[in-house]
Simulated assay, not measured.
Amino acid sequence: MPWQSGEPNNGDVEKSAEIELRSSDWSNFSWNDRPLDYEIQKSWYICQKPAQPPPVEGECPSGWKQFQSKCYYSGTNRISWLDADSYCKDQGGQLAKDTSDVHSFLSTEVANLDTSGCSPIWFCNLYVGLVYRPGEGYKWSDGSAVDESFMPWQSGEPNDGDVEKSAEIELRSSDWSNFSWNDRPLDYEIQKSWYICQKEASTPEPPPTQAPPPPPTEAPPPPKTERPKTAAPQEPQTTNIPTLPPCEYPVPIHNVAEGRPTHQSSDKPKKDGGSEKAVDGNKDSDLKKGNSCTWTNKEYQPYWQVDLGQTYDIYEVVITNRQDCCSHRIKNAQIRVGDSQNFEENPVCGTMIIGKMSREETITIRCGCETPMKGQYVSIQLIDKEQMLHLCEVEVMAG
């Protein structure tokens, strides 16, 4: 207890200790006692608090950068906020939260992006996960609250009115070191932007704890030198995902859906993506140039259905999937075939569209090889998912 000479000397009262400075030399300071409620001579003070725990070590996929316990990915393909939000979620994460503790890190990361092809420079703004909805205010895309003491809006922003909107990192020069935010409508298709995803870093597998086996006490027997048998040549396997076994149908099959009546859960306003586009005979997978794909609102479990006019023996359903953007939106699609106009009462055809299959241009779902499914109605629905549904063509192959 490094008391100054003669201290403590303030009697048997509630008191504290202070660092006593008698000269400008702090290198060997000592203590002086002082009553707790001493108002005449007040002093400076030193606080302490527990240090933050060290960040959780983890691993990030290739192309992602780690900061503390999270991984970040900067996407430099220009898409809408809704498409960026869907992409980040499909990667197991969300659009980045530009909070005060990661703002400097994000500044450094985006400063390293190549913006030489951006003309004008603000074509390379980056979406983050901030979203505004009338009546709810600003939240992060996962529904968590926003720290309103840190919202670095650019001067004059936000200015897009009381509509559903998002925030993007605004770039007005080549200096990213102190970027700010600009608001943008969620469904803004005219000016698209880059984006930043974030997700939790994965915990690496611990090293094995089992001790290695002891060395053998006897030399192992020499290997047998039997002449290897020549393997029969193998047919090359298909690289389609998933790989389907060969299937020979007992009868010729043909498309019975073209031109038949259809409907879907909703029509995206002003997008001309009606349900009939999926059975117009046009397989162009470029939604905007081909103008031949369906387009629903972003909603929970959207669906599409075709009425074949009579009951058919249905062997497979072939979907032409959108390719100019957002092919992953068809992930979790489920097909049903049956005679009930209420498609939820009809049995499921084949497997759900998952994984890499959801990015293929042509997706074939088999309802049966030798034994077909019977039905007048064929439906396609996204299961347990809030998303838009695009179908560029649907062929119902029946015998």
Results as ranks from 00 to 15, higher is better:
149 S>L: 08
182 N>E: 04
370 E>Y: 13
286 D>A: 06
306 V>Y: 07
203 T>V: 09
252 P>M: 11
257 A>V: 13
75 G>E: 03
397 M>S: 07
396 V>W: 04
139 K>Q: 13
206 P>W: 06
185 P>Y: 10
121 I>W: 06
110 V>R: 07
262 T>S: 04
113 L>S: 07
282 N>Q: 05
360 E>V: 14
291 N>T: 15
103 H>R: 11
91 Q>M: 09
348 V>C: 02
128 V>T: 05
373 M>V: 06
53 P>K: 04
205 E>G: 08
327 S>F: 08
361 E>V: 14
288 K>H: 13
336 R>I: 00
393 E>D: 13
155 S>V: 02
169 I>Y: 05
170 E>W: 13
143 G>V: 00
110 V>S: 00
76 T>P: 10
284 D>R: 14
36 L>P: 08
359 R>I: 10
72 Y>W: 05
53 P>F: 04
146 V>R: 00
71 C>D: 09
145 A>D: 15
84 A>V: 04
65 K>M: 13
367 C>P: 00
379 S>D: 11
239 T>W: 02
69 S>T: 09
375 G>C: 05
202 S>T: 03
288 K>W: 15
305 Q>L: 01
370 E>H: 12
58 G>C: 02
70 K>E: 15
107 S>K: 13
335 I>Y: 11
289 K>W: 10
289 K>F: 10
175 D>C: 02
324 D>Y: 04
325 C>L: 09
4 Q>T: 13
135 G>K: 15
207 P>T: 01
242 P>K: 03
187 D>K: 09
89 K>E: 14
213 P>I: 14
89 K>P: 10
279 V>P: 00
254 H>W: 11
153 W>Q: 00
254 H>C: 14
95 L>C: 08
92 G>Q: 07
165 K>D: 01
78 R>M: 12
196 I>R: 02
203 T>S: 11
347 P>Y: 01
265 S>M: 03
387 Q>V: 12
228 P>E: 07
131 V>F: 04
268 K>W: 15
304 W>I: 02
195 Y>E: 01
323 Q>E: 15
52 Q>A: 15
78 R>C: 11
25 D>W: 04
327 S>G: 05
234 Q>A: 15
70 K>R: 05
216 P>Y: 10
264 Q>N: 01
285 S>C: 08
191 Q>F: 08
274 G>Q: 10
220 P>T: 00
16 S>L: 13
268 K>S: 06
266 S>Q: 10
375 G>P: 04
